[in-house]
């Protein structure tokens, strides 16, 4: 367990059209993938990503809706600009941008989330443990929660 690379998945709660996909994300994610659901990728604040990275995430995955299919019309488009720049910026200060992965899911992408998570996990596995920006000690088992 110690060696498994930690991945934080930020998922837009509308991006998975098939109930079985959402069920898989909700209940069957691999143990090293931590799920945070957001109402829209537009709700993602750079601080969310940073907190994941500082908390020791070896990879951050963001899944959202394709353009023009955003539940809130345009949330995903403004998120795209911000998140693109933020991952460039993190890369600049020393967090490998390959560790940040974006996936846009459409109606016909049934079952793709599983594949994407698996592929990204493999990629992060190959990149190894991330040390930069990992500055926040993780919660001890059974410790206090927010």
């Amino acid at each position: 367990m110690d060696t498994a690379k930690k991945i934080v998945l930020f998922q837009c709660q509308w991006c998975l059209y098939a109930p079985e996909d959402q069920d898989w994300v909700d209940h069957h994610l691999p143990e090293n993938v931590h799920l945070t659901k957001v109402p829209c990728t537009g709700r993602l604040d750079p601080l969310f990503i940073l907190n994941a990275v500082q908390g020791g995430a070896d990879g951050v995955m963001i899944s959202g809706c394709v353009p023009e299919k955003c539940h809130f019309k345009e949330g995903n488009l403004s998120a795209r600009r911000q998140m693109d720049e933020f991952s460039d910026f993190l890369n600049y200060v020393g967090y490998d941008e390959d560790r940040i992965c974006f996936t846009w899911l459409d109606l016909q992408d049934r079952g793709r989330i599983q594949k994407d998570v698996a592929e990204f996990s493999k990629k992060v596995e190959a990149l190894g443990k991330s040390h930069s920006l990992n500055t926040r000690s993780v919660l001890p088992q059974g410790g206090a929660h927010d």
Binding site: L77, R80, Q82, E97, F102, T103, F120
Partner: peptide, 21 residues
């Protein structure tokens, strides 16, 4: 400012399989 707007043609790294860039 760029962050106050967006464009359908923006750089897109939201692609299948999590390939960045």
């Amino acid at each position: 400012t760029p962050f106050a707007a967006f464009n359908l043609d923006d750089k897109n790294r939201f692609v299948a399989g999590g390939t960045s860039k």
